[in-house]
Simulated assay, not measured.
Amino acid sequence: LRRLRVREVPLLVVSHFHVDHVGGVAGVFRGRRVGAVVGPSWSEPPYGSAQVREAAQRAGAPLAPVQAGWRWRAGAVDLVAVGPPYPLRGSRSDPNNNSLVLAATVGGVRILLTGDAETEEQRAMLETTPAAAIRADVLKVAHHGSAYQAPEFLAAVRPAVALVCVGVDNDYGHPNAGLLDRLTRGGARVLRTDTDGDVAAVQAGGGLAVVRRGAESGAPR
Rank of each mutant, 00 (worst) to 15 (best):
V37Y: 09
R192E: 13
F29Y: 03
S43F: 04
A156Y: 06
A160K: 11
V202R: 08
P65M: 03
L88S: 00
A59G: 13
R189Y: 11
H21P: 02
K140I: 12
V77A: 15
A136H: 07
V14R: 02
N96Q: 13
F153T: 00
V166Y: 04
V38F: 03
S93I: 03
P40N: 10
L208I: 05
D196L: 02
A68D: 06
A219K: 10
G107T: 11
R182K: 07
E127L: 09
V22Y: 06
P40T: 11
A104F: 00
A150V: 10
W42Y: 15
R189F: 10
D181F: 12
Q67H: 08
H16D: 06
E54T: 07
C165A: 15
V66W: 04
P151F: 10
L180F: 13
L191Y: 11
I111Q: 13
S43Q: 08
G207H: 05
R213D: 14
R7W: 09
V202H: 08
E118P: 09
V80D: 05
L154Y: 06
A204S: 14
A61Q: 03
G145S: 12
P45S: 01
A26N: 10
A201V: 06
P62A: 13
N98C: 01
C165E: 15
G90S: 10
E118H: 14
R53C: 10
K140N: 15
S91F: 00
N98P: 04
S43E: 11
A162R: 02
L1W: 13
A133Y: 08
T119D: 03
P65T: 00
V138H: 04
L179R: 01
T129M: 13
P85M: 12
G48V: 04
V80T: 05
V138I: 11
R71D: 11
D171S: 15
A132I: 01
A215P: 08
D198V: 14
Q67Y: 06
A50R: 12
V168E: 07
T128V: 02
G186Y: 00
Y172Q: 08
G48I: 01
G167D: 11
A103C: 02
H21N: 08
Y148A: 15
A131W: 09
R185I: 00
L113T: 05
N97Q: 01
L139P: 04
V25R: 05
A177S: 15
H143A: 15
K140A: 15
V19H: 14
A26C: 07
G60T: 12
R58P: 05
D116E: 14
A162W: 03
L154A: 06
A147Y: 10
V82G: 03
R158M: 10
T193I: 03
G187N: 01
R3Q: 08
R5S: 14
P175F: 12
T119S: 08
E44Q: 01
A177E: 15
G186E: 04
A117S: 11
R73Y: 09
G75R: 12
R33H: 12
E120W: 09
